[in-house]
Amino acid sequence: MALLIAVAASLGVHALLLFAPEFDLPPFPEPPPLRAELKPAPAIETPLEPPPKAALTAASKGPAKHRQARAAARPPKPAPVLQAHASPLAVAAPAIDSPPSTAPAIDPPPSTAPAAAAIGPLALATPSAAAAGMPDASRLPARGTIRYRVDRGDQGFMIGQSTHDWVVVDGVYRITAVTETNGLVALFKPFRIELESRGTVTAAGLVPERFSSRREGRATGEQAEFDWQQMQVHVGQRPPQALSTGAQDLLSFPYQLGLLPDLASGTLMPVATGKKYEQYRFEVVGDEDVETPAGSFRSLHLRVGGVSPTELWLAYDRSLLPVKILHTDHKGAIFVEIATSIELSEEP
């Protein structure tokens, strides 16, 4: 009996030391806007020395097979410097207000071509063969559920689970997320937090109106009210702040990313976390294959830099929804959410 009590106490101490989640994004100073324009290098043909006049005369009178052989001996034109990538994203100048496509959803095929070379501080690794904007597959399905396993660290030490649900009806959306500990961690350190984002869906994507949170079933002061008429946002108990076009909240921003037409070039996005309202720069890392319990997905890897960076992997054939989220808190602790199941429907 004493041995069992000692083992339980040891497990409790380890759980308390290991688990200290942080759910909000850190503040970052607003960086200067960056524009990058990619242009293929002009094709340069190696000049050929003209043959003597006598040779030209002989060639014009020679057999056809000799002329064909000489034509085949000419050096080919050099290949373009940048190869077209099979990713369904278009490279464009950052413009948060650009409207996304509203055509029916079509899942694009996984990308297999190599990424282009990085230009400047952003790795623009996903140029598209079509420059018309985001693919139809980026449209948010009318209803969906993504279940995640929550790990502490990147070694698969599971500490909890998270479930994201959303529904869109008549241009109005509601997204909820419930994250809680389970197993031995829940026994020694129970934890449950509920997030909710409500707003409308327009040609520019999600337009949040209210963000709120509940911890252990009770409302917290971490909330945000968006007044789009007065262009003000009320975060927690802070005074009203000027609201920027394209602003999102802590829960809506991962879903808005897949609706942006210029995502492949990186973007700035104002985000209200319930504690603060700051600008965040999302940078494109590149295309990656992600293995999850829900399946293997060709995904776009994004990063939010800063003291507490966050990384997201958006699956191309799942409407650019997040199938993996990694967050490093200000103490250096790593928390990973990885999809275990995805359910999508076009019926609200």
Rank of each mutant, 00 (worst) to 15 (best):
A2G: 03
L4P: 01
S10I: 15
V13T: 15
V13G: 08
L16F: 13
L17D: 13
L17Y: 09
P21E: 04
F23Y: 12
F23Q: 07
D24I: 15
L25M: 14
L25Q: 11
P29S: 14
E30T: 11
P33F: 00
P40F: 14
A43W: 12
I44T: 08
I44Q: 11
E49N: 12
E49G: 05
P50Y: 03
K53W: 14
K53D: 08
L56C: 03
P63L: 06
K65C: 04
R70V: 12
A71H: 05
R74A: 10
P76Q: 09
P76D: 07
A79F: 10
P80M: 10
V81I: 14
S87A: 09
A93D: 13
A95V: 03
S98A: 08
S98H: 06
T102E: 09
P104A: 04
A105H: 12
A113P: 11
P114W: 04
A116Y: 06
I119D: 06
G120L: 01
P121Y: 02
S128P: 02
A131W: 07
M134Q: 10
P141T: 07
A142K: 10
T145V: 09
I146C: 01
R147H: 07
R152M: 03
D154H: 12
D154T: 12
M158N: 15
D165Y: 07
D170H: 08
D170W: 05
G171I: 07
V172W: 07
R174A: 09
A177V: 04
E180Q: 11
E180H: 15
L184P: 02
P190L: 04
R192S: 11
I193H: 00
E194R: 00
T202K: 14
R210G: 05
R215L: 13
R218N: 12
T220H: 02
T220C: 01
E222Y: 09
Q223G: 15
E225Y: 10
D227K: 00
V233R: 02
P240R: 11
A242P: 03
G246Y: 02
D249G: 02
P254D: 10
Y255N: 04
T267K: 03
P270H: 15
A272M: 05
A272R: 02
T273V: 06
R281K: 07
F282P: 02
F282W: 14
E283L: 11
G286F: 09
G286P: 06
D287Y: 12
E291Y: 00
T292A: 00
T292V: 01
P293I: 04
P293G: 01
F297P: 02
R298I: 05
L300H: 10
H301Q: 05
H301S: 06
G305N: 14
G306A: 11
V307W: 14
T310Y: 13
V323Y: 01
T328H: 08
H330W: 15
A333T: 09
I334A: 13
I338S: 08
E343K: 12
L344V: 00
P348I: 06
